[in-house]
Design a protein around this nucleic acid. Structure first.
Lengths: 141, 141
DNA sequence: CATTGACTTCGAGTAACTCGAATTTACTAT
DNA sequence: ATAGTAAATTCGAGTTACTCGAAGTCAATG
C-alpha cells in the first residue's frame, strides 16, 4: 500500500508541513514518484510509528535520528544492544511523563473544585444558558 | 519569606534564565531590591505554581498570561467564570496527556520486550559486567 | 583595595515546527 | 489543444519558548 503526503500526514494526525520537514532532515526517508512527489509505504508507517512514540517520550529529533540510524545499520549484537539501551532510557521518560501528567491532572482537579465552590456561592443564574456547562470530567470506563 | 532569583529557580527545578524570561515578558511579576536585583516572595511561589501547572497541561505562554491577567482583574462573577472555563479546558488537556503518556509507555514496554527477546537469543556474555543491566521497570508502590 | 560571586541587560542562537508565496505537475472539462 | 483546479513542490522567513554568553554592576570578604 502506498500513501500520498496528505494521506500520510492525516494518518498520524499531523500536518503535511511537518512530514515534509521530517523527510527534509532525513529523519523519515521517502520515495518519490515520477512527478517528484513524496510517496510513503507501509514501511514508512512503521518508521513513523516509532518516531511518534519516541517523540511521545520527550526525545529530541536528534535523539530519534540517532536511534533510526542505528536501526538502519547492519544488525549486530552491539547495535541491537545500543538500540535497547536507548529504548530503556526513553521508556523511563515515558513513565515519568505519566506521573507528571497525573500530578498535573490532580492539581487541576483541585482548582476545578475550588472554582466550583466559589461559583456555587454566587447564586448562579441557571436560566442563562451561558452559565450552563457540560460535565467535562474524564469518564472512567 | 523572600527568595533570590537563584533560590527561586531551584525551587521550581528550572533555570535563572527561564525565570528572568518569565519576569521580562510580565508573566511572573517580581519586586526589585535596592540593588535592582529580582526578589520573590510566597505570593510569587503561588503564581509560579499555577504557571507550572498550566504549562504541564500544555498551555502556551500566551494562554497562561491570559489566565494570570484575569486573576489580577477585580474579582467578579464574570472574571471568575472565565477563569473557571480556562481551568476546565486545561484539565481536559491534562487528562489527555495522562492517556497519551500511558499509551506511549505501553508501546515502549512492548519494544523493550521485543529487544529482550532478541537479545536473549544472542547468548549474552554474562561474565562481562557491561552486559549487566538493572531492572529499570517503574516500581509499583 | 582587589577579588569573588551573584546579579544585571541585551542581543544572538536554537529546536521544532509553521506559514506562505511562487512554481510545477497531473487530471478533468470544454 | 487549452483552461482550470487541486495537490504537490521548493525555499525563505517567522514563531515559540527558551538558552546561551558577553559585558557590566554591586555588595561582601580577605
Amino acid at each position: 500500500m502506498i500513501y500520498t503526503l496528505k494521506q500520510f500526514a492525516e494518518m498520524f494526525n499531523t500536518t503535511e508541513h511537518t512530514i515534509r520537514y521530517y523527510t527534509d532532515i532525513n529523519l523519515l526517508p521517502c520515495q518519490r514518484d515520477k512527478g517528484n512527489r513524496r510517496i510513503f509505504n507501509d514501511e514508512s508507517v512503521n518508521w513513523m510509528q516509532g518516531i511518534a512514540c519516541l517523540k511521545g517520550c520527550g526525545a529530541s529529533i536528534e535523539d530519534i535520528k540517532e536511534y533510526c540510524e542505528l536501526c538502519r545499520l547492519p544488525e549486530s549484537k552491539e547495535t541491537l544492544y545500543a538500540r535497547y539501551q536507548i529504548i530503556l532510557r526513553q521508556r523511563e521518560q515515558a513513565y515519568k511523563r505519566v506521573e507528571d501528567a497525573k500530578a498535573t491532572a490532580a492539581y487541576m482537579d483541585e482548582k476545578v473544585q475550588h472554582y466550583e465552590q466559589i461559583l456555587s456561592g454566587l447564586i448562579p443564574d441557571d436560566s442563562n444558558p451561558e452559565n450552563w456547562t457540560e460535565d467535562t470530567r474524564p469518564k472512567k470506563h
